[in-house]
Amino acid sequence: MTTLEDVLADLEAESAQLQDWVAPLEADRWATVTTPEGWTVAHQIGHLAWTDEASCAAIKQDPAFAAGMKAAAANPTGFVDEGAEQWAAKEPAALVQAWEAGRQRLAEALRAVPEGEKIAWFGPPMSPTSMATARIMETWAHGHDVAEALGITPPRSDRCRHVCHIGIRTRGFAYLVRGQEAPAVDVHVALTAPSGELWTWGPLDAPERVTGSGYDFALLATRRRHLDDVDVHAEGEHAAHWLTIVQAFAGLPGNDPLRLADR
């Protein structure tokens, strides 16, 4: 069974890896564009730091979190961008320092949540372990954006399992956010980890299946790769459709990722 401490250790490892990539950068490289929407390296790190701060506020039931919920409801398409922009304006060294300190505060706050208590969030309330897993998913995805923009090849670690897990657990949300009805059909998912281990979810006798690379499924679920460019395969019409909309993160899906050949 995966414990909160297991997840927090993986979160720190994923965060430290990204910090090692960005901390030595010259100031001008922090302006490197990482997404089609124009987010820079600074926006990526700023977003992670901002979300850690919001998570701490949610855990402590700080009035700042309630204010953030209202702001998000009033500006659902721009709220996240505004937070990233605010943090990205910091001097790079100060931003790295604030991000590192913030994630340490978050780990301590998550450890202090009473057993069985859920944490309010912009989506459904979450357990401390689920919130820590969501932070890995975000760090992994935004770290991939940064690495790709800087010409870095990220090592393929089994930490991507956390991303796969969220992508599978949020299957129903992927339909909901697109105004579609989720089919009442079970899907068995069997993915091969970078280490070679087999990860499975869902009933073994499910009528439909998804198989392939765990790392590639994580890229697909964070909408960093087009389905045509990953080693992930479906058996069954519902499983096949799910792979076109799978989404591990909350909020609107955004634009579909381009095929690598079209970039």
Rank of each mutant, 00 (worst) to 15 (best):
Met131Gly: 07
Ile119Gly: 05
Val146Gln: 02
Met131Cys: 09
Val146Ala: 01
Gly143Val: 01
Arg135Cys: 08
Asp145Trp: 02
Gly143Pro: 00
Ala141Gln: 04
Ala132Met: 06
Met126Pro: 12
Pro124Lys: 09
Gly143Gln: 01
His142Thr: 00
Ala141His: 03
Trp140Lys: 02
Ile136Pro: 01
Gly143Trp: 00
Ile136Trp: 01
Ile119Gln: 07
His144Val: 15
Phe122Asp: 05
Met131Ile: 14
Ala141Cys: 07
Ser130Pro: 12
Glu148Arg: 00
Met126Trp: 10
Gly123Asp: 09
Pro128Tyr: 08
Ile136Phe: 03
Ala147Trp: 05
Ala132Glu: 03
Ala132Ile: 08
Asp145Cys: 03
Thr133Gln: 14
Ala134Cys: 11
His144Ala: 13
Ile119Val: 12
Thr139Asp: 03
Lys118Thr: 10
His144Phe: 08
Thr139Phe: 01
Phe122Lys: 03
Met131Arg: 08
Lys118Pro: 10
Ala147Asp: 07
Trp140Asp: 02
Ala134Tyr: 05
Ser130Thr: 10
His144Asn: 15
Glu138Val: 12
Glu148Trp: 00
Ala147Val: 12
Pro124Tyr: 04
Ser127Tyr: 05
Ala120Lys: 13
His144Pro: 11
Ala141Gly: 15
Thr139Tyr: 02
Ser127Met: 07
Pro125Ile: 06
Met137Val: 14
His144Tyr: 15
Ala120Asn: 10
Thr133Trp: 08
Ser130Asp: 15
Thr139Lys: 02
Glu148Ser: 02
Ile136Gln: 00
Pro125Glu: 04
Ile136Glu: 03
Gly123His: 08
Trp140Asn: 03
Trp121Asn: 11
Met126Lys: 08
Ser130Arg: 14
Pro124Ile: 06
Pro128Asp: 06
Val146Thr: 03
Glu138Asn: 07
Met137Pro: 12
Trp121Leu: 14
Phe122Trp: 04
Trp121Thr: 10
Ala141Asp: 12
Gly143Asp: 00
Ser127Gln: 15
Ser127Asn: 13
Asp145Ile: 02
Pro125Gly: 01
Pro128Gly: 05
Thr133Met: 14
Ile136Leu: 04
Val146Tyr: 02
Thr133Ala: 11
Trp121Arg: 06
Thr133Glu: 12
Ala134Thr: 08
Phe122Met: 05
Ile119Asn: 07
Met137Asp: 13
Gly143Ala: 01
Met137Leu: 15
Lys118Phe: 13
Gly123Glu: 12
Ile136Val: 07
Phe122Gly: 07
Pro128Gln: 11
Ile119Ser: 13
Met131Thr: 10
Lys118Ile: 11
His144Arg: 12
Lys118Gly: 14
Met126Ala: 11
Phe122Gln: 05
Ala141Ile: 09
Ala132Gly: 04
Trp140Phe: 06
Val146Leu: 03
His144Lys: 11
Ser130Trp: 15
Ala141Lys: 03
Thr133Phe: 13
Pro128Val: 08
Ser127Thr: 14
His142Lys: 01
Phe122Cys: 07
Trp140Cys: 02
Ile136Gly: 01
Trp121Tyr: 11
Trp121Lys: 12
Thr129Cys: 15
Met137Ala: 15
Met137Glu: 07
Thr129Val: 15
Pro128Met: 05
Trp140Thr: 03
Trp140Met: 01
His142Met: 02
Ile119Tyr: 05
Met126Gln: 06
Thr133Asp: 15
Val146Cys: 04
Phe122Ala: 11
Pro125Asn: 02
Arg135Asp: 10
Ala147Ile: 12
Thr139Asn: 03
His144Thr: 13
Val146Ile: 08
Val146Pro: 00
Thr129Phe: 15
Trp140Pro: 04
Ser127Val: 15
Ala141Arg: 09
Pro128Thr: 12
Arg135Met: 14
